[in-house]
Write a protein that binds this DNA or RNA. Structure first.
Lengths: 109, 109
DNA sequence: TTTGTATATTGCAATATTACGATATTAATT
DNA sequence: AATTAATATCGTAATATTGCAATATACAAA
């Protein structure tokens, strides 16, 4: 991407955009789906669940981790990933606020 | 971006990723914020609301329009943009389903 | 200590995104 | 018809993303 002028937007706008961007790839949605589906941490199973090479999956995990959507714990030989509750709730709150605004006010063409 | 292998993911994963990606820029969040805030269509005011040049804003509007999040109507000399209810509701449904799954099931490290 | 297994990092090619000046288009106004 | 105003498109520079082979790292097991 080109340089995006984050300094001109509010912190909330930048944060929400970062979170949305992190989810803006089907592989990363698939990772989140998988984490939610299995009801707990995932240790050493994610690569096999995705139609991508191991380094590519690792990179997607890194991106999700860098915005805080997931967190990883080293567990012996494996790395266990799970949803990061704090960030997830923040994301949820951002969006629920948007959805609420739309429901209450929009009266459009 | 490089080529993303959309053919390996489900339609839902690809759609949700596209919508999230479209919201993955603070300028586009700002546009949505503004549309929601003003409670109706926006005619000819968006460029002045954003700290970006007119062609850049036009490009962001085009991206939001191309995934269906907003729609535009020509109104005389102006173009009026508003949230596209169908897509917005779809996006909302996708996310509410994710949030629900998290609430019910997640029991994590 | 060597081997095997899981994950991360590096490096790079192909492609996409962002931003904006210049220019085109379209319609209202004079 | 010429001017003004709003928006879109084109072209392009700078930078980011995606994907993966090769390689590194870290730990467990033999």
């Amino acid at each position: 991407m080109g340089v995006s002028k984050t300094e001109h937007f509010t912190e909330r706008q930048n944060e929400l955009a970062s979170l949305a961007k992190a989810l803006g790839h089907p592989a990363r949605i698939a990772i989140i789906d998988f984490l939610l589906k299995t009801e707990s941490c995932i240790c050493g199973d994610i690569v096999n669940e995705l139609p991508l090479a191991q380094p590519t999956v690792s990179q997607h995990l890194k991106e999700l981790k860098s915005v805080g959507i997931i967190k990883g714990n080293i567990e012996g030989n494996l790395i266990c990933y799970c949803i990061n509750e704090a960030t997830w709730n923040k994301f949820k709150a951002f969006l629920e606020s948007l959805f609420e605004t739309y429901n209450l006010k929009n009266n459009c063409c």
